[in-house]
Design a protein around this nucleic acid. Structure first.
Length: 421
RNA sequence: GUGACUAUGGUAUAACGGUUAUUACUCCGGGUUGUGGUUCCGGCAAUGUGGGUUCGAUUCCCGCUAGUCACCCCA
């Protein structure tokens, strides 16, 4: 029971790692999601939205205890009725819950979903890392065909391509849960044997997160890793065939990928294919994950369903993608036509015109003051033309149309206004 | 979660520990009562927060809050 001792100044700012969106950033986010929806929809995905809150258990069981997300990053709350709920830290487990709850197994398989949503993780904020962040995601549920792994990777790639930046898919196979479990034992045994030769921080990770040691940048550890057993070598034939089938399809699609035997992901539910999209900062090797995903055939059982539901999916970090995109997702206002009135009394007339007008580029400019002010602001905001309505135009059922780049203006009938492009 | 750096109007900034806290942009009003991009005049608006040192703190010290960076991890 800690009493809040925040000052007025403190509460008049958004909570740590959370932001307000307005103006350009709002547009960019909205345009990004619109674009992503369009691409996903062109590959047959349909939308799904789940609640912001889920039963805490869904994430505990799905993502896995021992992961950072579960151990220290969840926003948990207890309702007045005593339910333990959690602000969703990722999108896959909730959608799987919805699939099971609504018996979607009875629908034609597989089901392809896209979603856009904020997610919440109580992490320490940095650039490109927020406590409330936004993802666009895809989930394909009800098929184990590796073609769907490739399809998921492709659609994500097509969306990210819009940024114009160089993007490479890092890909790996984790095999089945059994293979992964026995490999983990082999790996831990290997590291115990070489424990003294590992970098300090990495020694502690033998118990907490042995997979991460494979990815270490410490020179001592890198040396040890050269003789470490790899997961890909341990795969059974079925897993290997699955993986090859995915990479063959990517070859055919001309999607650049790198097989990275060290790639693991933050959630426990992945098996077989896992991947990440990485971008390179100005030719430097230092990179930034824009999104990632993988196959999660066992998730349904982890969260309490009686059978497995083979599935594959991904999440794209909207904040990061927009961040590197320059003006790709910025709206250009030049196209729209603001309509202004010279007298406030003409507002009613203008509104009636707007209702009748079929040219959807025309809009009521929401500034009712002297015409000079209106013109000045319209010009500053980047519009290239304007419609002016005064007493004369109103009487004659006309508008004055002005091109702001050339300064030319002429009088248009309503019909001509409708046909303006 | 660990460590480092930072914090002045909406934005960007100035101020050896000492008058009324500087300047620019934005915004509002006016010169121009039906026409923008120039120019001129006027106006609104700030030392994140709580303590400490001092005759006196925007300035020095500490806690808090927030941001940035590295680690950790990840989207």
């Amino acid at each position: 029971m800690s009493e809040s001792n925040k000052s007025n100044k403190d509460i008049l700012q958004a909570p740590r790692g959370m932001r307000d969106f307005y103006g350009t950033p709002y547009q960019q986010k909205s345009n990004f999601f619109e674009y992503a929806r369009m691409i996903a929809s062109s590959y047959g995905f349909t939308g799904i939205e789940t609640p912001i809150l889920e039963h805490t258990e869904i994430f505990l069981k799905g993502i896995g205890e021992g992961t950072d997300i579960i151990d220290k990053e969840m926003y948990n709350l207890t309702t007045l009725g005593g339910d333990r709920l959690t602000l969703k830290p990722e999108g896959t487990a909730p959608i799987m819950r919805a699939y099971i709850e609504h018996g979607m197994g009875a629908l034609p398989q597989p089901q392809l979903f896209y979603y856009e949503s904020p997610f919440f993780r109580h992490d320490k904020p940095q650039k490109g890392r927020y406590r409330q962040f936004y993802q666009f995601g895809l989930e394909i549920m009800g098929s184990r065909d590796p073609l769907y792994d490739a399809l998921t990777i492709e659609v994500g790639y097509r969306i990210i391509q819009k940024t114009g930046k160089k993007v490479v898919v890092k890909i790996n196979s984790l095999g089945t849960r059994d293979i992964r479990a026995s490999y983990t034992e082999t790996l831990v045994a290997f590291y115990r044997e070489h424990q003294s030769k590992l970098a300090e921080g990495d020694q502690e990770r033998i118990d907490t997160n042995p997979f991460r040691i494979l990815d270490s940048k410490e020179p001592e550890t890198v040396t040890v890793n050269q003789s470490a057993p790899t997961l890909i070598e341990s795969l059974d034939k079925a897993s290997r065939d699955h993986f090859t089938s995915v990479t063959d399809t990517l070859d055919g699609l001309d999607i650049p990928y790198e097989i990275n035997p060290f790639l693991v992901r933050g959630m426990d539910y992945y098996e077989h294919t896992v991947f990440e999209y990485v971008t390179y900062d100005n030719e430097n090797q230092e990179s930034f994950a824009l999104g990632g995903g993988g196959r999660y055939d066992g998730l349904a059982e982890l969260i309490g369903h009686t059978t497995s539901i083979p599935s594959v999916g991904l999440g794209l970090g909207a904040d990061r993608i927009i961040e590197i995109s320059d003006d790709t997702f910025t709206t250009n206002p030049g196209d729209r036509i603001p309509m202004i009135v010279t007298e406030n009394s003409l507002y009613v007339h203008a509104s009636q015109l707007l209702q009748k007008c079929t040219n959807n580029k025309l809009f009521m400019y929401p500034l009712f003051t002297k015409i000079g002010k209106q013109m000045s602001r319209i010009e500053k905001e980047g519009y290239t033309r304007v419609c002016i309505i005064g007493e004369d135009e109103a009487t004659n059922q006309q508008v004055t149309y002005k091109d702001l780049t050339t300064g030319e203006q002429r009088t248009l009938s309503y019909k001509e206004l409708n046909n303006l492009s």
